[in-house]
């Protein structure tokens, strides 16, 4: 466990460290072993240009956890995910994925990735839902043929997310919520153990968002580890088992209840922005 290793951050750093350590204590009580560490980020620093977008970030995700990362726009949330997934090489520090260095991680089918709706770029591309879901099997198939087993896995995944009736539809003909389900199904078809989601509900109507989070909760209940970047703090507080608040650095890492009671949000978002968001999270927090 490296949670104590989180370096103190600029404003109110001491306090953050204490909170994080407490959160760490709580989870360590459950007796997690290193083999159960699905994501391990140690002192990650990365910048596209000179200024770092992510600085000295350390956190871990254990098997079966549902971790939500929140933070203001441009706080480095998506970049952090990309570092964890091995899509960028950190300037310093290192990330491990399912026990392997992220940059050299080869068992790609064990990780499912769902981003913001990508069909923006592929609006006119003719491709069916079934074809998209089958892509989850591609790392298994390599250069070989797609087998009947692969297709069965794809069908099963479509049933799990409840859109098997839409299998032969064009993916672009689906609603935003249905489309995100299809991308979840793609990860499930690949038998992913870790689901990484980068603001998956952007552009999805409110009603479908709730159903989408229900689906994630069900998957988590069945043992799926979830790492979710989400702008909707209320949803994360309500759904996730742990919250990481990020703005270049880690401002908070612990339980949703502890987060709601802390001032990490104000510090991460800045006072003005924070007040509005705080009110919302408070009311949500009380409700649950």
């Amino acid at each position: 466990m490296s949670l104590e290793g989180i370096p103190s951050v600029g404003v109110g750093g001491v306090e953050t460290s204490r909170e994080s350590a407490e959160a760490g204590e709580g989870r360590r009580g459950e007796g997690t072993a290193d083999a159960d560490r699905v994501v391990d980020a140690v002192d990650l620093t990365f910048g596209y240009a000179a200024a770092p977008v992510v600085e000295s970030v350390s956190f871990g995700v254990d098997r079966g956890e549902y971790v939500g990362i929140v933070g203001p726009n441009g706080s480095g949330k998506s970049t952090l995910l990309r570092l964890v997934l091995g899509l960028h090489e950190p300037d310093s520090g290192h990330a491990r994925l399912l026990g392997h260095p992220s940059l050299a991680f080869a068992e790609r089918e064990r990780v499912g990735y769902v981003a913001q709706d990508v069909t923006e770029n592929t609006k006119r591309m003719p491709i069916t839902v079934a074809e998209v879901v089958l892509m989850g099997r591609f790392p298994h198939a390599g250069f070989g043929r797609v087998t009947e087993t692969d297709r069965e896995h794809a069908r099963e995944a479509l049933r799990t997310v409840g859109i098997e009736r839409l299998a032969d539809r064009k993916i672009t003909a689906l609603s935003g919520g249905q489309r995100q389900r299809a991308y979840i199904a793609r990860a499930l078809a690949g038998e992913a153990e870790l689901l990484v989601l980068d603001e998956p509900t952007v552009g999805v109507d409110a009603e479908s968002v709730d159903a989408f989070f229900d689906l994630l909760a069900d998957l988590n209940d069945e043992g799926m580890t979830i790492l979710l970047v989400e702008h909707d703090i209320g949803a994360v507080l309500e759904r996730a088992s742990r919250v990481i608040c990020l703005n270049r650095e880690v401002y908070f890492d612990g339980s949703p209840a502890a987060f709601a009671g802390s001032d990490a949000l104000e510090r991460a978002y800045g006072t003005n922005l924070g007040l509005g968001a705080k009110t919302e999270t408070d009311s949500r927090g009380d409700g649950s």
Binding site: L85, L87, F105, A106, R108, E109, V111, Y113, A115, V118, T122, M125, I127, E131, V132, M135, F138, P139, A141, F143, V146, Y183, R186, G190, V196
Partner: peptide, 21 residues
């Protein structure tokens, strides 16, 4: 031979990279 990889890259470049392509 490379149909699956080309399709994945064409449809979603980032997801393709996550999938190890």
């Amino acid at each position: 031979v490379t149909y699956k990889q080309l399709l994945y890259v064409t449809f979603d470049e980032t997801a393709a990279r996550v999938a190890g392509i």
